[in-house]
């Protein structure tokens, strides 16, 4: 392994990882570190979305629902019953997965745009429900006002940290885990089956693929990942409300990051986030106050440009570029199998 690090195709990713790992020591500016946390977080969410919408080609525009379920579950457990968000996180994940499975039953009977429309519908139903519900039995949802999470100082066991750097490392760990999960799925029987479903369901069935079961499983895994992200979001901001964590805008942002990066690929969502997170932060700073919603306009324009000019996302272009750099650096591994480029 160590000897292989001489090769660019090994040391470049290693270098990238090293930089990510040391970033909080390099950057002293809290705000810039926050942008990096958002980059990791958005890449994480888009990767989770990618499992059902990219790999299996079922475009979801309601994934904020699962983020919201995760955020609300761990927050309510923490605020009302004092259960650590680390544990609440798992609860939220499981509830979201069950929800993803159940909602999939009726929704996956729909194909193409009808499926996407249905996902918007259930996303909105959950948002409107929570926005207008103060409490369900002993569970206090607090409606539109949202829930404030009390800050208990530096207490890692309660998912609360005093420095941004600590949150950064949590986000980095989640980011790396979801990439590993994506990679494992993509290169397994399940990944091939999901990809087949995304291309042609009838043909997939004829080859023995249980398409409904596959889609339900992918949907449950995807929902689980989203919900864990929701807990992170809640603990990072210490405040959740339906207009934020459950909004249709949020669902759209997640999907757009995935689409622009390159859906169905492991690293597409990472690239999407790398491009869109800084953009969204900049538009928020310069246009946010007076021109609320303009950042969505910018998103829309970029999305149009990408869909018309590079329909498979920026990953294809990036892949070629990366390949060329490796060749320039004289990588023996890549030169040996030129042409048979690895799919990222």
């Amino acid at each position: 392994m160590l000897r292989r690090l001489r090769y660019p195709s090994y040391f470049l990713p290693f270098l990238f990882l090293l930089i990510l790992g040391l970033l909080p020591f390099i950057i002293n500016n809290e705000y810039i570190l926050q942008v990096f946390i958002m980059f990791l977080f958005n890449a994480y969410l888009a990767s989770g979305w990618n499992i059902i919408s990219g790999f299996a080609g079922q475009l979801s525009l309601g994934h904020a629902a699962f983020v919201g379920i995760g955020a609300y579950t761990s927050t309510i457990l923490f605020v009302q019953w004092g259960i650590s968000p680390w544990i609440g996180m798992i609860f939220g994940g499981v509830i979201a997965a069950i929800f993803g499975w159940l909602i999939g039953y009726p929704v996956f009977k729909l194909r193409g745009p009808y499926y996407a429309l249905a996902t918007i519908a259930y996303g909105e139903i959950i948002r409107i429900f929570i926005q207008n519900t103060k409490a369900v039995g002993p569970i206090e949802l607090k409606g539109a006002e949202g829930i404030l999470i009390p800050f208990k100082g530096s207490s890692p066991a309660l998912f609360q940290f005093e420095t941004k750097a600590a949150y950064y490392y949590v986000a980095l760990a989640m980011f790396l885990l979801v990439l590993l999960l994506s990679y494992k799925i993509k290169n397994s029987k399940m990944g091939y089956y999901l990809s087949a479903i995304g291309n042609d369901q009838d043909a997939a069935e004829s080859l023995g693929v249980n398409t409904s079961k596959m889609k339900l499983t992918a949907s449950a895994i995807s929902a689980f990942v989203m919900a864990l992200g929701g807990t992170f979001y809640a603990q990072f901001l210490l405040y959740i409300n339906p207009q934020g964590v459950l909004s249709g805008d949020f669902s759209t942002e997640i999907a757009v990051i995935g689409i622009i990066g390159g859906e169905g690929t492991v690293f597409g969502p990472v690239l999407g986030s790398l491009i869109l997170t800084p953009l969204s932060e900049l538009t928020r700073i310069y246009l946010g106050g007076r021109f609320a919603g303009v950042h969505l306009l910018a998103y829309g324009l970029i999305l149009m440009a990408v869909v018309t000019h590079i329909p498979h996302g920026v990953i294809g272009t990036f892949s070629k570029l990366y390949h060329r750099i490796l060749l320039k650096l004289g990588d023996p591994v890549v030169s040996a199998k030129t042409g048979a480029g690895k799919t990222l």
């Binding site: 089956y193 990809s195 087949a196 291309n199 009838d202 004829s206």
Partner: peptide
């Protein structure tokens, strides 16, 4: 259909249904 496939029945389609965005090898690997 997928259950009949498990039993050992396979078919092709009159109007071909390749997995267009996958490579030829990946198609067959499915």
């Amino acid at each position: 259909v997928f259950e009949t496939s498990d039993l050992g029945i396979a078919r092709t389609f009159q109007i071909v249904k390749p997995f267009g965005k996958m490579t030829v090898l990946d198609n067959v690997m499915v």
